[in-house]
């Protein structure tokens, strides 16, 4: 019972919200901080590299980062969508392998290159759609469903062939060997262009479409998003379709890179993709993150590899150790960010 109401706005008092000073925010919104941190890390690593190793600070080394990781960039973009809703997709590595298999087997069977590409993309999207539907309508944890997807896709590879299948198709080979020369003599491959287009499209979808905003809303609070009347089902299923599509596309880029289909391609690549997304500042709990961050995350991972190859004497296992350490540091940093926000 509110028998005694507080005085209704004493004369000369300020309107409602000014009595509660809006907390002055730092010029940079907190949600950009993790991405900026990743960018700073990337630049710093590059700085250290150029001081230590001759030839490190060249445009081509940067371009190679993109060339060698084009497929991982595409994978990380798809993973970003999924993680933004608070989900996870463990199947992506296997779907990459399956895509290389389908592509190689299809071409071997005499399919034309465009048909093969379409088939692979449809297969990946369909695979994602299935997982998304199961996750949403049966309310099963994404971890479990996509883990099943991981085994299923990898198993299907063996059904197609246990041997590695070489790709001899002319279109594939010409894309694989094609180079695009940039001013300054640096060269990149068509795959790099495709990967960057994917990043740009993803950023557009996430920030400028209702679907994209619903993805963020679902990650923030699914029940609220539903009560707000948003199309949560479409967003929740949609992200797995996108992730499946990206995996298939990454599989195609990977087959350009390797020029073969093989059941043992891309083992554990889902973990690289997740690591890149997390290092890029996306919260595993969903709702916070930028696709540019994931791109930077991939570049950081790539730089670690470049380091190791420049060092020459280090075992490649050091890559894993470095990635592990970085991941830990970033997750702890995110905790601190989130903790301080409250």
């Amino acid at each position: 019972m509110k028998a005694a109401q507080l005085p209704t706005r004493p004369e000369g008092a300020a309107p409602v919200a000014t009595s509660r000073p809006a907390r002055r925010r730092t010029p940079v919104p907190t949600r950009f901080l993790p991405v900026i941190a990743t960018f700073v890390l990337f630049v710093a690593m590059f700085g250290v590299g150029s001081v230590r190793y001759e030839g490190f600070a060249s445009g081509q080394v940067v371009a190679n980062l993109f060339i060698d990781n084009a497929f991982l960039i595409v994978l990380a973009v798809g993973m970003t969508f999924v993680i933004l809703t608070g989900g996870i997709d463990l199947s992506v590595g296997s779907v990459v392998a399956l895509s290389t298999m389908v592509a190689a087997a299809g071409l071997q069977a005499g399919w034309s290159a465009p048909l093969t590409i379409l088939a692979v993309l449809a297969m990946g999207s369909g695979f994602g759609l299935l997982m998304g539907l199961v996750i949403h309508y049966f309310e099963i944890q994404p971890f479990i469903v996509t883990l099943a997807g991981l085994f299923l896709a990898r198993g299907l590879c063996y059904v197609i062939s246990v041997e590695s299948i070489p790709i001899k198709d002319d279109t594939f080979r010409s894309i694989a060997t094609g180079v695009i020369e940039l001013p300054g003599g640096t060269v990149i491959t068509p795959s790099v262009v495709i990967a960057l287009v994917v990043v740009a499209v993803a950023a557009y979808v996430l920030h400028l479409t209702r679907f994209g905003r619903t993805v963020y809303a679902v990650g923030g609070s699914e029940s609220s998003a539903r009560l707000m009347g948003l199309a949560t089902a479409r967003a929740k299923v949609g992200v797995y379709v996108i992730s499946g599509f990206c995996s298939a596309l990454a599989g195609l880029l990977f087959s350009f890179y390797m020029l073969s289909g093989y059941s043992l391609h891309a083992v554990g690549m889902e973990l690289d993709a997740i690591a890149a997304v997390v290092i890029g500042g996306t919260l595993l709990s969903g709702g916070v993150g930028l696709v540019v961050g994931s791109l930077l995350g991939v570049l950081v991972l790539g730089t670690i590899q470049t380091f190791i190859s420049f060092e020459g004497t280090l075992s490649s296992w050091w890559t894993k150790i470095a990635i592990g350490t970085l991941l830990l540091i970033f997750i702890v940093m995110q905790r601190l960010f989130v903790g301080r926000k409250a």
Partner: peptide, 22 residues
């Protein structure tokens, strides 16, 4: 307006008002 605040606290005030009708 359901009981308890049912909004997405990770988004901006403007988005919370207009989400779905942007």
């Amino acid at each position: 307006v359901y009981q308890e605040v049912n909004l997405c606290s990770n988004l901006s005030v403007a988005e919370n008002i207009l989400l779905g009708r942007e």
